[in-house]
Amino acid sequence: MLKFGKKKKYASIPSEQSKLDVPEGLMMKCNGCHKIYYRKEMKKNIYVCPNCGYHHQLNARERIESLFDEGTFKEWDEQLTSSNPLEFPGYEEKIDKDRKKTGLNEGVVTGKGMIDGQETAFSVMDASFRMGSMGSAMGEKIARAIVNAQNESLPFIIFTASGGARMQEGVLSLMQMTKTSVAIKRFSEAGGLMISIMTHPTTGGVSASFASLGDYNFAEPGALIGFAGQRIIEQTIREKLPDDFQTAEFLLKHGQLDQVVNRHDLKQLLTTLLEMHKKGGEHA
């Protein structure tokens, strides 16, 4: 098993910086081993370093491309975007900036499509949009996706990536945790299959709601996953945290995950799981 470089990033801090950790340009330097690669080469390897195995973040489009059968993905609620409910100074400008930068209207893309011929509902968060922080628009899109999945009797797969709450929406942001969780409960009661894949980083309110509520919960190697920020924890308990604290591997060790899955194995795993849940167990 390869050892992945730990990204020392603090949780639940949607700051000004809203870039992915994939460096730009023709060449890119791996965040794990710092070797220089052609971007094209890295892209072909779905941004997993061929040398050290570091999983660089994917944006929503790249994730969809890496999983869905070509041309099958149909997006839902593409136009839905944030308003400024608290009239928070400067919030609209920040949203506009990220809309231009990412081509997205919100930090999550939802829809349905085929993975190896099997239809599924889908949500993928994009950390390049306001650090994937959750506000009303994100909560609404995810809740609708779950409702659509239920109405169309589809499984629901979610890829999480979030710095936590969208501060500029205050308590409305907090309430999206409840909204999505109520939707999941209804979906689950109706027999729906939900799979959660936590990617780097999945923290704060997202970690403490839908990310943890899959029938199966997976994570990508090295991903930072946790509720409280590490700086706050260190200040509170006045001791240094272990190096692997709040990594996917740490969560697996503590019984909080079903598996840590290499990005190259993900599609096969999802395909098999979807296949296994297609029928209600016909043991003729």
Partner: peptide
């Protein structure tokens, strides 16, 4: 915000 709380799955407990 403690180490033990994270180890014992505080995210999952709240979400549940």
């Amino acid at each position: 915000p403690g180490k033990a709380a994270e180890e014992r799955g505080q995210s999952e407990a709240i979400a549940r």
